[in-house]
Amino acid sequence: MRWAFLCAFVSLCLCAGLAPQAQAGIDLAYQPMRVDLRLTPGQTQTGVVQLKNQGTQAIHLRGRMMDFVVSDDNTPQFVARTDENYSCRSWTILNPVEVDIAPDSVVPFRYTVQVPATLVAESRTFRCALTFESMPTLEDRIQKRTTNQVRLVTVLYATVGSPAATPEIGNPEIRKTEDAWRLEIPFSNAGETHYRLNGQVFIKDHDNHTIETLEMDSSPIQPATSVHVGFDIKALPQGEYTMLLQLNLGSKILEKEAIVEVLPSR
């Protein structure tokens, strides 16, 4: 769920200005949130991200091509540049880059991906992000009118060849604080394309009754990454439990089982 939120990345950052005007709301709609392209070396592909200003105020949009990475806790991060070996940022151009958008109007941002003729790998999924950040128009800025700021992200996957994912599931751990229990499962991917966390985690008691079912959020595990994915779980009384993870990879289901022993509190 968090990934879905972050992928849309509608992070509202209130400008903390002291201007007397009332803050104007921003209502932006856009699509698509994700683009999956299958390309060949040397191929050029163009697409469009459409943004609609549904608010009542003109805004300025600042578009940028960025890399995205995931942190250890599987949170997406959008940065200017990172590992070029997995990035399609430098192949992709955006037009327009910056533009004013009037209320109730739609601006198409066209992007063109031009895959280099030679690549670091014959088969790999490369990724990058088209980020759009709302800014006040120059006139609003000069007049010191304040606006909310919104950032939208379209994630772009460019798959060349037929790469495969190599999912791996490490040993889960349970972290306990005074008021929360958290199950953390390490996932890694030694393959050349991402796979998605589709499936469920079952926690069963010693009678094999399922006492809790956790849904995975379909977030992608990128190639050459290892992350810890956490789930909040109910507190477990003393006893022995079984944790069963079923990762649905489409063509197969990967299962991982762990025995959880809850010791008596001291």
Binding site: T44, T46, G47, V48, I93, L94, N95, P96, P108, R110, Y111, T112
Partner: peptide, 10 residues
């Protein structure tokens, strides 16, 4: 259809 044009053109 502008989405069929390379983004190097406007």
């Amino acid at each position: 259809e502008s989405d069929t044009l390379s983004a190097i053109f406007t």
